[in-house]
Design a protein around this nucleic acid. Structure first.
Lengths: 218, 218
DNA sequence: GTCTATAAATCGATAGAC
DNA sequence: GTCTATCGATTTATAGAC
């Protein structure tokens, strides 16, 4: 069966080449600039060949989203090492912001693109719930951390989903505003993100005064 | 000179018709869907005629932005009637969110479109600073309210621009997330916006505990 | 001032030869 | 498995007739 295996391996390789080229284009020029022709030029195949590996342009975008969610999770995962519940929430917010700041093109693809992708991802998730799905893991990660904080009695209110989504919204606001209209901001994105994370955690904590770790605690 | 005046009037009227049609298309289908042909069909002129009134598609978009900033200011302006500094910040946040929720297409055009517009607006503002510019007024409005709160000694920290931009980012995050990926949110936009405004104001207030008006105080 | 007609450039996707 | 060739539909913007 050596021949069949080689063929399968070569097929997988070309598929990876297509994804790598697509990712580079999206990173450099944004998703709107991703065309089948550009991918074809990059991998030195004809555009028609790509359709033998992906159903269409959308399918390539979805695969890129999955990989970027993995990337995002890799940023946030270390935050579980922070024992203090509020400190962990702070660490999650900081790492999420850092992902967006350091990977603006990926961030834009995941959270700022016209509904289609996220909606497609959520629709797919509802059809076949998969706890291993990177996107699902990313969301659950934040909700779990809020639950832990709630159970420790350190939160002023008790609605994990609402608080998780508010925290997400706050950091998302900083990152997306910085991406969309950096020229409008006087403050640096880093200062803005840090201030946002600290203010939100302070705002949800049961005691008005919280001891927040140093900024480098990310 | 009656003839010249009638011509001028008719010219201004057609210009308004073009803008009205453009705004309707943007509102219903988004800015990406705005094409010269669609405008032409709507006003029952040929597409070529539009170029006699606007340099290009971008110029139409810029004019729509100016008008939408006016619209946004009209939402926020009543907040000055709230005497309490923190209450006023809360009212501004609520009214900003309400603008975004009630006018998603305008909001998307102003703050979620590919940098070009806001950057062009800010570039123009830097060239010819104009305190009457609607966009400038909207931003100054928030900064002023933060300054008032700071002067009253009710804020924990003292950096008006940073705090203003953080408040802006927070509410922007809620609105933009709701627009981009509503399917991802369990909570309602209204609850999310209200929680965000209250949490942020609580988080920046000098005393950890703040008396916040009822939700209907918008 | 307004039109028709069209240039010039894209794009996604497919049919069919090899 | 890959290619060439092309369809069919877009778009912005302009040239030139009326």
């Amino acid at each position: 069966m050596g021949i069949a295996e080689r063929k399968e391996r070569q097929r997988a390789e070309l598929r990876e080449q297509i994804l790598a080229a697509a990712r580079r284009i999206v990173t450099e020029e944004g998703f709107d600039a991703l065309t089948m022709r550009k991918i074809a030029d990059a991998i030195e195949y004809s555009a028609a060949t790509i359709y033998l590996y992906f159903e269409n342009r959308e399918a390539i975008g979805l695969q890129l989203c999955h990989e970027s969610f993995e990337h995002l999770v890799s940023y946030m995962a270390p935050a579980v090492q922070v024992a203090d519940p509020l400190g962990r929430l702070l660490a999650i917010g900081r790492s999420y912001a850092r992902f967006g700041i350091e990977n603006p093109a990926e961030y834009r693809l995941l959270f700022m693109t016209h509904s289609s992708f996220l909606e497609a991802l959520f629709a797919a998730e509802r059809e076949h719930p998969d706890p291993d799905d990177p996107g699902e893991r990313a969301f659950q990660f934040v909700v779990d951390a809020v639950r832990v904080a709630g159970a420790s009695g350190k939160l002023a209110t008790d609605d994990p989903e609402l608080i998780a989504e508010m925290l997400w919204s706050g950091v998302h606001g900083v990152v997306s505003l910085a991406i969309t209209c950096k020229a409008a901001l006087v403050s640096s994105v880093e200062d803005l993100a840090e201030t946002m994370c600290r203010t939100l955690v302070r705002g949800i904590s049961a005691s008005g005064d919280v001891t927040l770790g140093s900024r480098s605690t990310s």
